[in-house]
Structures are given as C-alpha cells and as structure tokens.
Design a protein around this nucleic acid. Structure first.
Lengths: 299, 299
DNA sequence: CCTCCAGTGCGTACGATGTACCCTATGAGT
DNA sequence: ACTCATAGGGTACATCGTACGCACTGGAGG
C-alpha cells in the first residue's frame, strides 16, 4: 500500500470512541463509477468472517473445490511475509496458486477483505485459535499488568514475524472473530476493577497502539536502510547531505543529538524489543497511576 | 499507502517458476529502464524541503512562472480537506490549477514528495511558521506536562482541521524543517531533566502517537458513518446482522457492552476532544511516574 | 536584429492495479 | 439424462503515477 491509506487499531484492541471501521474509497487504483456497490464489502469484509462461523453447519461446498479461502489467505500471507504487503496483488496471489486472478473473487469479496482475512488469521495464530471458550489466550491468575505486558509481547512477536502486520491492521481495525476475541481477553484483565468499559478500552488500546507504532516505525526505518544498501551512492549522498545540512543549520541541537545517538548504537534485535517494552511500561505506569487514583478495587 | 513500493518490485526475483507473464524483461516496476534513478526521492521528498531553504539565496526563477510549489501544495491541501487524501491525484490537482498533470512534476519530484510537502506545510501552520528561532511555538515557562498537553491539543486541532493529516503523517514521519522544529520544541520541554535523549523522545512520541491514532480512528468511524447514510439499506442490514450475530454468540460480553455503551452516548465534538485528552493524560501520568522514579530533577 | 538555450507547460503513452462482465466446465439433485 | 447453481478463468476497462519528448518562452550573446 503503498497504497495509500490505512488506519488504526489493533488485534486485541479496537478504536477508542467509536468502534466502527471504514473502507476506503473504491480503491486506490480502482474505479468507482458503479454507484450502488450492491454486494460491496462493508467493514473490510468482516461480515464474511462471521458468515463463515455459522455457515459450517450448512453443507456449503457442493463439490471438491480446488481453491478455498483458507488457502488463498495463507498464500497472501506468505507473499506479504517475503515481499511486503504491496506485493500482495490479486494477480500475484492467483498466479502463485496457479489460477487466474478473478478466481479469487469466488472466495473473497475484494482485496480489502483479503487483507482483513490475513490480519484475522494472524491474530488467530497468535491467540491460539481456541475455538469457543470466551477466555482465549491468557493463562489465568494474571494481574492486569502481567496480562497486558504479555499481550504486548506477543503482539510484538507477531509484528516481527509478519512485518506487514502493523501496516495492515492500523488501516483497518480487526472487528473479526479473532480480533474481538483478543480484545475480549484483554478487557477481561480488568474484570475486578470498577471502571467504565470505555476506560478499560482506553487502557488496552493505548498499549496496543504503542506496540504497533513502534513496529511500524521500525519497518519504515528498515526500508530506508535497505534502500541504502541497494541503491547507488547518489542517493546516499543526498541523504547524508540532508542530515549534514540539518546538523549544520544549528536549529535542531536536540534532534541532532538524538539522531547521532541512534546512529551509533548497535541496535540488535534484543535492543529493539527492550525499547518497545520500555514504551509499554510507560503506559502501564500511567494505568497504574490512574487505577490508584480511582482506587476502587473490589476483591 | 501506500505507494512507496514502486521499486519494491526490484526483489522481484520471486517470480514463480516459469509462469511469469510479460513485463519481466527490463524490470518489474513501472520505470526501471532508467538505471540510476537519478533524481529519485529518498525520504518522501524530504531533501527537497531542505534544498528550498538554501535555494532562496540563488535567483532561482528566471521567468514569471505561472505555477509554483507553494501553490501546488496549497491546492493539494484544499482538495484533501474537502474530498479526502484519496482525492489528491496529480491529475486532479493539476486540473484544479488549470494545467496538465505533468506540469506539476516541474515543481515536485513525485507524489510522495507532494504529500510530505503537504504535511510539512500543515505543521508549519500549526507551529506558527516562525522563521529562524530554534524555540518555536511554545510559550516559555511551561512545565513539561503543560507543554506536552498543549502540543497534544494543537495536534488534535490540526487533525480535525485537516482530516487527512494523521493518515498522511503516520506512515511517513515528517523529517522536514517544520516537523523537526516541532520535535525540537517538544524535546526542549525536558531540558531541565537529566535523561537520555532517546528517553525524552519516547515520551514525546508516545503523546504524539496517541493523538494521531485517536484522530485516525475517528476518521474511520466517520467514514463508515457517512457510508451508512448514503448507502442502501442492504448494507445497513448486513452491518446490524453482523453486530447482532456477535452479540448473540455470547462469546464477547465485554466487547458487546462496550459497543452498546458507545452507541448510546451522544458523541459531540467536545466529547471527542475530552476522550483523546484523557488518553493523553494517561501517558502523561506514565511519564510523571517515570520521572519520579528517576527523580533526577535539576533546577 | 537574430540566435541560442535553460527551463516551463503539457500531451501522449506505458505499466500496474482492482475488479465488472461474461463464458465454460463440473457435478449434485431431480 | 437433464438442469442449473456454482467454481474457474479470460478479457477489458477505469484509474493511477509518471517516463519521455516536444512546443513554447523570454533573457543573453552575437
């Protein structure tokens, strides 16, 4: 996506005030001359996920199909994992599967839905895919702090495993079975506290956003770093000229220090993890302060 | 989205075994026959902004040009304000300006750069466009808490004034003169504290991200709300069926409560502002806790 | 005066993308 | 065996960013 637009919220958490998600216009490069959008996907193809759940009862598939939704989504994920989210193209996915692009549309309403399905699948993997129990992934007996931290860590792991994940989910809050299951589990951490649901939601969201953003920023950084190595020296010269000019201007002493500090540190994978976890702890401290302020503990 | 991956296709070695259709010849992407990518934009056309600063000294324009960068950017902003970021198209901008699409490329390297310029311009307006002084927009004598809150508020205002702003800036951090000036000012709030720059940075970005995300979520919500009103009842039915199914499943009691709670509240503009400011305060509490922990205050 | 020429404006065209529309094959139900 | 809903897939189009090249402009040098 390069494309262009995408938005915000996460697996275990949804948007703050309103929970609704949006579908972008027709599509970045698509057409919109069709007024009614009859069978148009509503929330990023989310309802499709829900159909699925009840649909298993009916003998849906009448014939041995060579293609099915799961397969398509898995392939799309594989492509995104190796070549980035932008490489996920209807044609590319189809080609990889040995079929035509339009065949995919028998199983997926549109591309936004496909991305939503990718996100939901990844969340499902992360959460453990437990079928029915409302209490999903969290071991029992955790404090809210331990629980949220654990969620943050597994989110982070997912972000690193599927680099496209932040980009995809930030754009479209996953109001999908797995996404909501994660949110539900996170909210349950505050069951013992007498707070408005919306406030609990705020806590969960804050943590989630922090992780996703950190991952997203890291992704962007990696991209430009990759560019450095591949591209010709001319680009590099332009970049360093830019940095040099900034430092030379003397108008940004603190920023300059920041950049040089970042540049000189090793930045191994462990450091990254520690860094984002530090950010999470910042939020957790805020929550603790807020709880102490309310101090309306029950049990 | 989006679209910075035009060259992503370079790793296109990933072509499936033999099936790859045409286009593999010269290069996967659009233009690749031009090896060096001579004037290619590096960080979203950022260096272009920096050129500008020193370039004013030279008598750049030799003739009375009908078009200039400022004008283009302003027009793009106007379009985005009224019709959304997706409506900002090279053709559209040009048309509005009464010229051809390609004329814009005399003043802007590519579309990503145009968006970067839009963001920088908006930040400039927010920050006050003070020319040289390093200390930009903040009145003196503020505590870090007051200062960060003030920044959060003005960011929020900008987000509401230019709904496309979060979308545009989240993907591509504004390493532009105005963007860095804002960051510099924010960092200066912690001048009196003996902390690592990176830690100060973490504080500032945490606040910033919270605001941007809240705005982004709100934008998504508004989009789908608009859709409700315009679209046919069929879509609405699908949506409520989705919500109903979710509630009926009984697997998401907390989420269900959350949604119903949100649905019944009035949600005026003031409430939105209060909501995001509450989120900001959460972060601020976290920062306060962290500072107290370090408690290395100087004067 | 005319001749250059850097630089602007802009039309044309290409490659890529999402997907509407239409046609064919298949196999379950009658 | 016949019907027909469904899966698979080809073709075509609208739209986008933008490479390329030509036409025009107005000052500098002869």
């Amino acid at each position: 996506m390069s494309s262009q637009r995408d938005d915000a919220t996460r697996p275990a958490a949804a948007g703050p005030p309103g929970v609704t998600a949006g579908t972008r216009g027709p599509a970045p490069g698509a057409q919109a001359h069709r007024a009614p959008e009859a069978g148009r996907s509503f929330w990023g193809g989310v309802e499709l996920l829900w159909e699925l759940e009840t649909e298993t009862q009916r003998p849906r598939r009448r014939t041995g199909t060579a293609l099915d939704r799961e397969q398509i989504v898995r392939e799309a994920i594989r492509i995104a994992d190796t070549d980035g989210l932008d490489a996920v193209t209807m044609r590319r996915v189809a080609q990889q599967l040995g079929t035509g692009a339009m065949s995919l549309y028998r199983h997926v309403p549109d591309k936004d839905a496909l991305v939503a399905l990718m996100v939901d699948t990844v969340i499902g993997d992360m959460i453990g895919e437990s079928p029915l129990p409302p209490q999903v992934a969290l071991p029992p007996g955790l404090t809210w702090r331990e629980g949220l931290r654990l969620i943050a860590e597994s989110n982070w792991q997912t972000c690193r495993e599927h680099r496209w994940y932040p980009e995809a989910t930030i754009a479209q809050p996953p109001l999908t079975p797995n996404g909501l299951a994660g949110l539900e589990a996170a909210l349950s951490l505050f069951d013992g506290y007498d707070l408005a649901v919306t406030e609990k939601m705020m806590f969960v969201t804050a943590v989630h956003q922090t992780v996703l953003h950190a991952a997203l920023n890291l992704l962007l950084e990696e991209r430009s770093r990759a560019r450095f190595q591949v591209d010709d020296a001319e680009v590099f010269a332009g970049a360093s000229a830019f940095l040099g000019k900034m430092a030379a201007s003397g108008r940004y002493p603190r920023v300059t220090e920041l950049i040089s500090r970042i540049g000189q540190e090793p930045q191994d994978a462990g450091a990254e993890r520690d860094w984002i976890l530090a950010g999470v702890d910042l939020i957790l401290d805020g929550i603790a302060a807020r709880l102490a302020q309310h101090d309306a503990r029950k049990p």
